[in-house]
Every structure is written in structure tokens, then in C-alpha cells.
């Protein structure tokens, strides 16, 4: 098993921490993992992305130019990464703020209206966990138990009381993701 993922959106959307939770979940499942952020002069509101690789064998390059899955959270990232998905790969995107939707026919496209759902759930900060849920529904590369253990590892202890609400968000994401 090898899953090469790019997660891309605005700084502040929780792109990097979502990647980190996914990587920790991978460790809990005894997988090899790598997490490589774009670390340019990023800022809140600017673009941010992270490459996460989960594999049951040693990971060679942590930097990739094509991906099994792209998780896309804004228009700039969609424009940049849609063409870098492997044929037959997956694109999961939040349509919030998207004016030019994906056009490729040789990939599987899924939509998750996570931003909208997060507002409905009255918990905008769990936006990224709704997206993570959508991803895990499409690609169940790690089991839920390990995701929750990954959350525990990745969050500082003072935030552990937030784990149930994050779990709820992940489950919600699993429910609302739709293949286009």
C-alpha cells in the first residue's frame, strides 16, 4: 500500500494540521509516513499545502509532482494541482469559493461541502476534520481507531477534550461526501 496525497488550501484552514493528524494516524497503523509542507513565505489567507505519504514500505522521495489523491480547499490550489493527479486518482474538493470546477474525466472527483457543514455544526474550526472524514470515506487507508489515536498524539493534552467534537466532524464528513 502506498498513498501519495497533496492537501492544499488557504493558510489558516488547518491544511497542515490535517496532514499531521493523517500522518500520526498512519504511524498508529504501523505505516511509514512523511509530511512535507510548503514552507515558503506563507501566511494566514495565503496558500498552504502539505504532501503526506503513507506506505507500508520505505518512502523514497517526500517531494512529489504527481499524486494519488488531491484534497483541494480553494480555487488557486485546484488550478495548480488538478493536472498533477495521476490518471485514475482521486480529487476531493470543497466547492466553497470555487468558480471553475474540476474538468478532468480520467480521475474520480468527489465533493464535500465542508465549510458549509462546519457552519451548520456551529463549529467552523472542525472544518478540516470534516474534510478528513470525506477523505477517509473515499480512501479508508487508516481505520477510525487509529485516526482517534492519531488525534490524541497530535493534539496537546490541554485540547484532548475537543476530541469528541473532532470525531463527530470526521463522521459527518464521511456522510456528506459525494462522487461527482
Amino acid at each position: 500500500m502506498k498513498e501519495e496525497i497533496i492537501i492544499a488550501g488557504f493558510g489558516g484552514q488547518g491544511v497542515l494540521s490535517m496532514g499531521k493528524i493523517l500522518a500520526y494516524s498512519g504511524i498508529m497503523q504501523n505505516l511509514e509516513v512523511s509530511w512535507m509542507p510548503s514552507y515558503g513565505p506563507e501566511m494566514r489567507g495565503g496558500t498552504a499545502n502539505v504532501t503526506v505519504i503513507l506506505s507500508d514500505t520505505r518512502i523514497s522521495s517526500p517531494i512529489l509532482h504527481e499524486y494519488d489523491t488531491a484534497i483541494i480547499l480553494n480555487q488557486q490550489s485546484l488550478d495548480k494541482f488538478e493536472q498533477q493527479i495521476k490518471p485514475g486518482g482521486c480529487l476531493i474538493y470543497d466547492s466553497n469559493g470555487i468558480t471553475h470546477h474540476p474538468t478532468r474525466k480520467d480521475i474520480n472527483v468527489y465533493r464535500v461541502d465542508a465549510a458549509e457543514e462546519a457552519v451548520k455544526m456551529n463549529s467552523t474550526k472542525t472544518f478540516n476534520m470534516i474534510v478528513l472524514g470525506a477523505y477517509l470515506k473515499v480512501k479508508p487507508v487508516v481505520v477510525m481507531e487509529n485516526v482517534l489515536n492519531g488525534l490524541k498524539k497530535s493534539l496537546p493534552e490541554r485540547h484532548h477534550h475537543l476530541i469528541p467534537i473532532n470525531e463527530k466532524a470526521i463522521e459527518r464528513g464521511m456522510q456528506i461526501v459525494n462522487q461527482i
Binding site: K20, A23, I27, E32, V33, S34, W35, M36, P37, Y39, I59, P62, I63
Partner: peptide, 10 residues
């Protein structure tokens, strides 16, 4: 270099 410094691994 920046790759090895900034990336996270086990």
C-alpha cells in the same frame, strides 16, 4: 537542507 529540516517523519 530545507527539505530534511522542514519535513516530518517517524
Amino acid at each position: 537542507d530545507g527539505v530534511i529540516g522542514q519535513m516530518m517523519e517517524k
